[in-house]
Deep mutational scan, measured.
Amino acid sequence: MATADDFKLIRDIHSTGGRRQVFGSREQKPFEDLVDLGWLKRSSVDSRATHYQITERGTSAAL
Protein backbone atom coordinates (compact mmCIF):
# COMPACT_ATOMS: atom_id res chain seq x y z
CA MET A 1 0.00 0.00 0.00
CA ALA A 2 1.34 3.42 -0.95
CA THR A 3 2.22 5.89 1.78
CA ALA A 4 2.28 9.69 1.76
CA ASP A 5 6.08 9.51 1.44
CA ASP A 6 5.71 7.30 -1.66
CA PHE A 7 3.47 9.90 -3.30
CA LYS A 8 5.87 12.70 -2.36
CA LEU A 9 8.85 10.83 -3.84
CA ILE A 10 7.09 9.88 -7.10
CA ARG A 11 5.94 13.50 -7.57
CA ASP A 12 9.50 14.69 -7.04
CA ILE A 13 10.86 12.17 -9.55
CA HIS A 14 8.15 13.10 -12.07
CA SER A 15 8.85 16.83 -11.73
CA THR A 16 12.58 16.35 -12.35
CA GLY A 17 12.30 14.43 -15.60
CA GLY A 18 11.20 10.95 -14.52
CA ARG A 19 14.64 9.46 -13.87
CA ARG A 20 16.79 9.08 -10.80
CA GLN A 21 20.25 7.70 -10.09
CA VAL A 22 20.76 6.34 -6.58
CA PHE A 23 24.04 5.50 -4.85
CA GLY A 24 24.28 3.13 -1.90
CA SER A 25 21.95 0.36 -0.82
CA ARG A 26 20.48 2.29 2.12
CA GLU A 27 19.29 5.06 -0.19
CA GLN A 28 17.66 2.53 -2.54
CA LYS A 29 14.96 1.34 -0.11
CA PRO A 30 12.36 4.05 -0.89
CA PHE A 31 12.94 3.56 -4.61
CA GLU A 32 12.61 -0.21 -4.35
CA ASP A 33 9.26 0.35 -2.61
CA LEU A 34 8.15 2.30 -5.69
CA VAL A 35 9.39 -0.53 -7.94
CA ASP A 36 7.21 -2.93 -5.90
CA LEU A 37 4.22 -0.61 -6.50
CA GLY A 38 4.95 -0.60 -10.24
CA TRP A 39 5.65 3.14 -10.24
CA LEU A 40 9.36 2.84 -11.10
CA LYS A 41 11.47 0.37 -12.99
CA ARG A 42 15.17 -0.29 -12.64
CA SER A 43 16.70 0.76 -15.93
CA SER A 44 20.26 -0.28 -15.07
CA VAL A 45 22.44 -1.34 -12.20
CA ASP A 46 26.18 -0.91 -12.06
CA SER A 47 28.69 -1.41 -9.28
CA ARG A 48 28.15 2.05 -7.77
CA ALA A 49 24.64 3.15 -8.67
CA THR A 50 21.15 2.05 -9.62
CA HIS A 51 19.15 3.96 -12.22
CA TYR A 52 15.38 4.20 -11.97
CA GLN A 53 12.82 5.38 -14.51
CA ILE A 54 9.19 6.30 -13.90
CA THR A 55 6.51 4.06 -15.43
CA GLU A 56 3.12 5.05 -16.85
CA ARG A 57 1.56 3.88 -13.60
CA GLY A 58 4.01 6.08 -11.69
CA THR A 59 3.17 9.05 -13.87
CA SER A 60 -0.52 8.55 -13.09
CA ALA A 61 0.23 8.39 -9.37
CA ALA A 62 2.26 11.61 -9.58
CA LEU A 63 -0.58 13.64 -11.06
Results as ranks from 00 to 15, higher is better:
residue 25 S to D: 14
residue 56 E to R: 09
residue 20 R to V: 15
residue 44 S to R: 14
residue 60 S to E: 15
residue 26 R to K: 14
residue 27 E to P: 09
residue 8 K to D: 09
residue 20 R to T: 07
residue 20 R to C: 09
residue 38 G to L: 04
residue 26 R to E: 15
residue 38 G to C: 05
residue 43 S to D: 14
residue 10 I to V: 06
residue 50 T to P: 06
residue 35 V to Q: 02
residue 55 T to G: 01
residue 20 R to P: 04
residue 31 F to C: 04
residue 45 V to M: 09
residue 50 T to H: 07
residue 1 M to G: 13
residue 50 T to N: 07
residue 58 G to F: 01
residue 20 R to A: 12
residue 21 Q to H: 10
residue 40 L to A: 02
residue 38 G to Y: 03
residue 39 W to K: 00
residue 2 A to G: 11
residue 12 D to F: 09
residue 57 R to Y: 08
residue 15 S to Q: 13
residue 46 D to R: 03
residue 14 H to M: 12
residue 58 G to H: 00
residue 20 R to Y: 07
residue 36 D to F: 13
residue 25 S to P: 12
residue 25 S to M: 10
residue 17 G to S: 06
residue 60 S to N: 13
residue 56 E to Y: 08
residue 22 V to K: 03
residue 21 Q to G: 07
residue 51 H to Q: 11
residue 22 V to W: 03
residue 17 G to L: 04
residue 29 K to W: 05
residue 29 K to N: 05
residue 13 I to P: 01
residue 3 T to N: 08
residue 55 T to Q: 02
residue 31 F to P: 01
residue 61 A to F: 05
residue 17 G to D: 06
residue 21 Q to W: 15
residue 52 Y to W: 03
residue 27 E to I: 06
residue 58 G to Y: 01
residue 2 A to I: 06
residue 6 D to I: 06
residue 26 R to D: 15
residue 48 R to S: 14
residue 43 S to T: 15
residue 18 G to P: 02
residue 52 Y to Q: 00
residue 61 A to T: 04
residue 51 H to F: 12
residue 14 H to D: 03
residue 50 T to C: 08
residue 27 E to S: 09
residue 22 V to N: 03
residue 5 D to M: 11
residue 2 A to V: 06
residue 44 S to I: 13
residue 52 Y to M: 01
residue 39 W to M: 02
residue 7 F to Y: 14
residue 21 Q to L: 14
residue 31 F to A: 02
residue 4 A to T: 10
residue 39 W to E: 00
residue 33 D to Q: 15
residue 18 G to C: 03
residue 41 K to T: 15
residue 34 L to M: 03
residue 15 S to H: 11
residue 3 T to Q: 06
residue 46 D to Y: 04
residue 42 R to L: 10
residue 5 D to A: 14
residue 29 K to M: 07
residue 46 D to Q: 08
residue 62 A to K: 01
residue 2 A to E: 05
residue 10 I to M: 03
residue 27 E to M: 09
